[in-house]
């Protein structure tokens, strides 16, 4: 699924990585537990949906080869996070929707889970 379709479905805003708007996402994983994100085993293009908004969210995605992160419930992304994301060619999206609603809408629209 294209980023543009994803952002439009959940009324999201791209806050970093506009240049990568054409990226295609194969599947998504929703979690606030970074320990869980670090156990993902997949070669597919994954988007993380999370309510955990700090630098370790970005670091975890860097190590896990996750290039797209969606922050739910209107979380504010800090400058430090944006710099880290920029350094790693990541795309960051925010939405006011809850994690449950975001995941539900995207799943219904055809974006599968990792597992």
């Amino acid at each position: 699924m294209k980023i543009q379709e994803i952002t439009s479905l959940i009324s999201g805003t791209v806050v970093e990585g506009e240049a990568f708007i054409d990226r295609d996402i194969d599947c998504a994983f929703a979690s606030d537990l970074m320990s869980d994100v670090l156990t993902l085993r997949t070669d597919k293009s994954v988007m993380l949906i999370t309510g955990l908004c700090n630098t370790q969210t970005i670091r975890t995605c860097e190590m896990s080869d996750i290039k797209v992160v969606m922050f739910v419930r209107g979380k504010k992304v800090t400058e430090e996070m944006i710099e880290l994301a920029e350094d790693n060619d990541m795309l960051l999206i925010t939405t006011d929707f809850s994690l449950y609603r975001t995941a539900g809408i995207l799943f219904n629209a055809g974006l599968p889970g990792v597992y």
Binding site: L33, S35, D36, L38, T39, T60
Partner: peptide, 15 residues
């Protein structure tokens, strides 16, 4: 609060 401390680190390091 940083998203860790679930007792998964060492087993994940092993795998």
């Amino acid at each position: 609060e940083m998203g860790f401390g679930a007792g998964m680190g060492l087993p994940n390091m092993q795998s």
